[in-house]
Simulated scan of single mutants.
Amino acid sequence: MKAWIAAGIALVGALVSSGAMADGNELADQCRVYTGLMNGEKLRDPMKDNPLKAGLCLGEVQGAVELMGYLGSGVSKDMKWCSPETASNDDAVRATIEYMSKNPDVMSKRKIDVIWLAMRDKWPCNE
């Protein structure tokens, strides 16, 4: 019995660490719900359009933006982006959605990688 539990925990850990459960497709679905709510749309299917998805989208994007702010000069130039001080979290989410729609090849990448690529594309540094 303990072996089955350990195997289950190992499998879940492997799936999470490989990004199988958290890729651009999942991010796109979460951000679809976020955009709908921000545009005042009513949720048609509470199970499919769970408002928690909107929070996950916003949280993932905001987390990446805050991480860049924290790391600052410690990030290499090829990985850095320079968003304007006036950019909001909503601007960052919309930039991520736009990037995903224009670059479907990134959808199998981890969420954080997709967000990072989107931010670099939207706000490249002019250094």
Rank of each mutant, 00 (worst) to 15 (best):
M1I: 15
K2G: 13
K2C: 05
I5N: 09
A6V: 09
A7E: 09
A7S: 07
A10F: 01
A10H: 02
L11S: 13
L11G: 10
V12I: 11
V12A: 12
G13E: 01
A14P: 07
L15P: 07
L15D: 08
V16L: 15
V16D: 09
V16N: 11
S18Q: 10
G19K: 03
M21G: 14
A22N: 15
D23T: 00
E26T: 13
E26P: 00
E26Y: 05
A28Y: 13
D29E: 10
R32K: 03
V33C: 02
V33D: 09
Y34N: 11
Y34Q: 09
G36S: 14
L37S: 03
M38L: 00
E41M: 13
K42G: 10
L43S: 13
L43A: 14
R44N: 11
D45Q: 06
D45R: 03
D49C: 02
D49Q: 15
D49V: 06
N50H: 14
P51W: 04
L52P: 00
G55R: 12
G55N: 14
C57G: 01
Q62A: 10
Q62D: 12
A64E: 06
V65I: 08
L67Q: 10
M68P: 00
G69I: 08
G69H: 05
Y70W: 04
Y70K: 08
S73Y: 01
S76T: 07
K77G: 07
K80F: 07
K80T: 08
K80G: 04
K80W: 07
W81L: 04
A87C: 12
S88Y: 07
N89R: 08
N89D: 13
D90F: 12
D91I: 09
V93Q: 14
V93M: 10
A95R: 11
A95G: 11
T96P: 08
T96M: 01
T96I: 05
E98Q: 15
Y99K: 03
S101N: 08
K102V: 04
D105C: 00
V106L: 03
K109H: 11
R110Q: 06
R110M: 05
K111Q: 14
K111A: 13
I112P: 01
D113M: 06
V114F: 08
V114W: 07
I115W: 04
A118M: 04
A118I: 07
M119T: 05
D121M: 05
P124E: 01
P124I: 00
C125M: 02
C125W: 02
N126K: 15
N126Y: 12
N126M: 14
N126G: 12
N126D: 13
